[in-house]
Structure formats: C-alpha cells, structure tokens
C-alpha cells in the first residue's frame, strides 16, 4: 500500500467534501462583518482568528472551498474532454489532419495560460467565467499531446483492427474500446491540469481579476490578508495559501503515483 498516495487520496476526498458541504459546515456566517473584532488571533470564538473586517477566518476558508475548487475543476473537465477528443481524432485519422492539429497545438503552446486569461478578462470583464475558458483553451495542447501519443500507439494494436473487421464504426471503437485502454493517461493528465489551473486561478483571483470580494475565495483571501500582515497578523494569507498548496500538492502527487504505477516502475 502506497502511504503517500493514500494520504493524497484522503486529502482530496476531504477537499471534495468541503467543496460540496463547506457553506453548511462553516460555524459562522462567512460574510458577517464585526469591525470591533478585526485582526483577532485564534480564540475560542474564532478558531482561526478574524480578518480586517472581523469576519471569521475558519468560516471563510470552509465556505471558500467551493469557489476555489470549482474553477480548476471546470478547467480540468473542459481541457481534458476537448483535448482528448482532438487527440484521439488526430491519432485516428492521421495524415494531413494529424499534421494540421499538431501545428495548431504548437501555436497554442506558445500562448501562456495567464496571458490568455488576462486577455479574456480584459474583453469579457472580471469573474470566474472568462479566466476558466481561457485557461481551458491554454491547457488543451498539454492534454492533447500526451493523449495523442498513447492513442496513436493504441490505434495500431491488432485488437483495434479486429474490431474494424467486425464492422464497428470508428466512433464506437474509439469511445468503447480505445478510451478505456488509455483512461489512466487521460486521468493523470487531467489531475495535472487541475493543479496548474488551481495555481493560475489563484493568481488571477489574487490580482482581483477573477472571483470578486466578498466571495470567500482562497486566492482572494491571500490578497486581502496582505494588509493584515502589515498589522502583524499573517493568519489570513497563511491559511488561505496553505489550502491552495495542500490541494495542488495532493493532486499532483497522486497523479504522479498513479502514473508511475501504470508504468510499472517506482515513482521518481
């Protein structure tokens, strides 16, 4: 039994639980302002202390799980599904189609995700929608490149030819037979996409271009905690950053472990 993988899996289950039930778990209203209780250190009333407006930090962190995790999750779903589709079509059809897709992906590779996200915000305004779509597009080539290589290898295996001989359509073979044989690769790549998107979205939210206050997003909280640091209480930025780091670490480590297990070797 792989201890690190188990710990990561437990952390991810807890995070998913928080994303779903966070708002109801919060002991207090995450947006209840109490200026008389601002900048408090952890006390029995506020287990993790309060922020500059006297809002309960624990409540804000728990309620913030959903907006913080929903963005990367959407990026992951969009980028993985589109990337895998493009990759499998490219590997299947081959020839000039494959070449055109490969060159288009190269062009996409050249565009940094954050830059694309800023552009989207500039055009469509702040909020979660524009950066999520921009990051999903920017992550497509990363998924597509890996999936294309395994799909191209799989496509040449005799069992695929045997299925063609049985009269199945390319679509049926790809969806029902090829994907189940390469889903681990797709899954590992999806997890990495989630981790990258988490970091990028946190940066976007930190800069105030994504989720807007007073929504308790972790990236937003890191930014809001800056003033508190000058006042000598670093709890808000620290705890919010810790949640981001733990999430990214758990997802990345688990994806490496699962990938290494599939290759049959020891994780590096």
């Amino acid at each position: 039994m792989d201890i690190i993988a188990t710990i990561c899996a437990v952390v991810i289950v807890v995070l998913v639980f928080l994303a779903i039930f966070g708002p109801w778990l919060a002991p207090q209203d995450p947006n209840a302002v109490d200026l008389s209780a601002a900048y408090q250190s952890p006390t029995t009333g506020h287990l993790l202390g309060t922020d500059s407006s006297g809002r309960d930090l624990l409540s804000r962190l728990l309620a913030g799980a959903r907006p913080s995790l929903a963005g990367p999750f959407l990026v992951m779903v969009l980028a993985t599904s589109l990337g895998a589709m493009v990759a499998i079509a490219s590997a299947w059809i081959g020839g000039w189609f494959d070449a055109v897709i490969a060159r288009s992906l190269d062009v996409l590779f050249a565009l940094p995700g954050l830059l694309l996200a800023f552009l989207a915000v500039a055009m469509f305004g702040t909020g979660l929608g524009a950066p999520v779509i921009a990051l999903a597009i920017a992550n497509i080539p990363w998924v597509a490149r890996v999936v294309r290589s395994v799909a191209a290898k799989e496509r040449r295996l005799p069992y695929i030819v045997a299925l063609e001989v049985q009269g199945f359509s390319a679509w049926t073979i790809a969806v029902r037979h090829l994907v189940p044989n390469v889903y681990r690769t797709i899954g590992a790549q999806a997890a990495l996409t989630f981790a990258y998107a988490m970091v990028d979205l946190a940066a976007i939210n930190f800069l105030g271009l994504g989720v807007q206050p007073p929504t308790p997003d972790w990236g937003v909280m890191v930014a809001e905690g800056q003033t508190a640091i000058l006042r000598g209480s670093s709890e808000e930025s620290l705890f919010a950053s810790a949640f981001i780091v733990i999430t990214v670490l758990a997802v990345t480590l688990l994806s490496y472990r699962v990938g290494a297990e599939q290759r049959g070797g020891q994780p590096e």
Binding site: P158, A162, L163, G167, H177, N181
Partner: peptide, 20 residues
Amino acid sequence: RSTGIAMIFQDPRAHINPVR
C-alpha cells in the same frame, strides 16, 4: 463485416481488447 464475413486471427491475445 458484421454479418457477411468473420475473421479468425493468428494471435487471439493481441486481437481481443484486454480490458473488456
């Protein structure tokens, strides 16, 4: 292919989807 003709291959292990 699905009703008129059937093919039997030399290496059945390679010609059957391993995960089904």
